[in-house]
Simulated assay, not measured.
Amino acid sequence: MEILRTERGGARRLGTREDQVLLVCIGACLAAILIASVLLAERAPGVAVVSIEFDDTLADQLSARSILAEHRMHATFFVNSGRLDRPGYLTVDELRALASDGHEIGGHTVDHARLPGLPAREQRRQICDDRRALLALGFAVSDFAYPAGAYDSISAGLVRSCGYDSARRAGGLGSPACIFCARVESIPPRDPAVTRTPGSLRRSDRLPRIQALVRRAQQDAGWMQLTFHHICDACEEYSISREDLSALLDWLAEERDAGRVVILTVRQVIHGARPPPRTLAVD
């Protein structure tokens, strides 16, 4: 420990040179964080790419069809082929109606199986057989979503070998308060087999929270996937009401028409399609 003599003959302890260097580094880091915060706050908004997505083949998702058409938007529906035509789930005819409107149909495993921990053979059946079944029904299936957003190295590898161009996880994007966390997914994605999201949206995620997610994508000119499940009035934790979905799409339409948002399906994002918003109109 270094000692510094004062004018009165006393002594004051100074830290070691390493301690002093550490204090300087901490100060520099704090200054960098402050500067980054100011720069992010003052940046002019860019253009956000937003994908509207529905998981699990749920029957009440059919009510999104008219709302999406009214707002001239297309969505991606991630489907479990083994659930089709069962009570509480979409029918094949309903899925074909959605596809005929221009909505993307993606894979989501045969039975909504949580993949990590399953034997490789069962993971292959869930992922590959789901895609084969949907292709056999006439759907162009190129993108996948992991049930519950859960995956491991086996499932990520099978997604590629089974012919998918992308697969979506749950999470991977930090909160707005996290300066150094990834805030949006890049275009093209850092890893198409594990695209990042803020997680599935819940009933408690009101319009201001979802707007904040989109604004993050505007700031970083990146991709934000908005993942929904049930469309109902407070029927499930992972749900959104028709009224709230309509209000969200009203706002997204305003942002789109102002040139601040482009609404694209997952396939369009992965394949690099960036058409002007008005080309997405539903006939």
Rank of each mutant, 00 (worst) to 15 (best):
S100A: 14
E70W: 10
L264Q: 15
S37P: 06
R65M: 13
A28W: 05
D143A: 09
L90H: 15
F180R: 11
T197G: 04
R202W: 02
D191K: 05
E7A: 15
G88L: 12
R124Y: 12
S51R: 09
D143G: 14
L95F: 06
G174T: 05
S66Y: 08
G138A: 14
G171M: 05
E185Q: 11
R12H: 04
S81N: 06
H103P: 10
C29L: 14
Y164N: 06
A41P: 02
L134F: 13
D55Q: 09
M73P: 05
V261D: 05
P147N: 10
V21P: 03
V79Q: 06
R169S: 07
T265S: 15
A182V: 01
M224Q: 15
T197M: 06
Q225Y: 03
A28E: 11
A273P: 00
V141H: 11
A145M: 07
D152T: 03
Q268H: 10
C232W: 00
D152C: 01
E237Y: 04
D152Q: 02
D143V: 10
I154P: 01
T195G: 03
Q61F: 03
I26W: 14
R86Q: 15
I179A: 14
R132G: 03
A31D: 02
S200I: 07
S81C: 11
E104L: 11
R256L: 03
T16I: 07
F139V: 13
A99K: 09
T279F: 13
I210Q: 02
A28Q: 05
P275N: 11
D257P: 08
G172D: 08
R121L: 07
R121N: 06
T195Y: 01
A281H: 11
I33Y: 10
A247E: 06
A99N: 09
R209V: 09
Y89W: 10
D56A: 07
G9A: 09
R17F: 12
